[in-house]
Design a binder for these strands. Structure first.
Lengths: 157, 157
DNA sequence: ATAAAACCTCAAGCAATATTGAGGTCAACA
DNA sequence: TGTTGACCTCAATATTGCTTGAGGTTTTAT
């Protein structure tokens, strides 16, 4: 292994370097490690060291988080992939295809909600029996979260 | 005040009734009350009583939550409105117009993210210098959350 | 009259996603 | 060789949005 002038193997990264380059806090990297999202090895002084591919991995985690996927799900998705080599285009394709579907669903449900909001602005909404926001059995839940959205006999004073 | 056969004023609701009809748990109604989102008065036995308009208020809270607005913001938006009468169409219009804007933003940023995901599937993404997901100064943050998304020199082994 | 169901308060707990702090070690630079 | 900054672990704290539980009261039903 080639070593740099500072005794580090070429291209290995310290936790501080990863933090700076990936834009996440050191404490977050520690946290991700406890959650199994990332891994590291230790140098002789017990300090974490990372391969460059960690940057990609962290970036993927951040992208996935932006889509609204919880960390546990991200961890599970990433768990099938090796920690010690960069993600390939194929890895990424698999991951992102799945996340894209979930993202599509989120977008669709938010869009439906927005349309209902808009419609209700137009119709005066909450005083109307047929307003979609009052309609139980709705299709706009974020993920089947709740029962009915509004109930009957709303308007009887 | 007209009273029912059970001694309750006509149309006033107990916390259990509100829970059942609005689809939120009793504990949630208590919680919302501590947060100032809703109010109640007490009967002679110290039990909460609500006007029917509470149902509409709770429904609005739930709708707003679905758009991703935090409770504190919802509370603030609702704070300008009286607790003791139903929301009018105008009230609703003001609230929903503001929330719709935020919802639009969320949808736009998620859509941008999705498009980037899709694009990166096509381009092999993470190995390419010009992939939008690698591009700092991006416009896809949920709300300016983080610094750069990915960093340079990702691909050097 | 009495028992069950519903209600009350207050405190604690939970899940997710981290951040902060205390107390101590290691590494980089002058 | 210091000294300072970076790092270590582990525990505690923070935020949001609730739920659960203990211990006790009120309401409703029979």
């Amino acid at each position: 292994m080639k070593k740099s002038e500072f005794g580090r193997i070429a291209h290995e990264l310290t936790v501080g370097e990863v933090a700076e380059r990936s834009g996440v806090a050191v404490s977050t990297l520690h946290f991700y490690e406890t959650k199994g999202l990332i891994r590291s090895w230790r140098n002789s002084g017990n300090q974490r060291r990372y391969p460059r591919s960690i940057l990609r991995r962290v970036a993927v985690i951040k992208v996935a988080q932006k889509t609204g996927i919880p960390l546990a799900d991200i961890a599970e998705a990433l768990s099938v992939l090796p920690h010690d080599r960069p993600l390939t285009a194929t890895d990424w394709e698999r991951l992102s295809a799945s996340w894209k579907r979930q993202l599509d669903e989120r977008i669709a449900s938010l869009s439906a909600l927005r349309d209902h909001l808009t419609g209700c602005i137009g119709c005066g909404c909450l005083s109307m029996r047929d307003c979609p926001l009052r309609n139980p059995g709705d299709e706009m839940g974020e993920k089947g979260t709740g029962p009915l959205l509004l109930e009957t006999d709303f308007d009887e004073k």
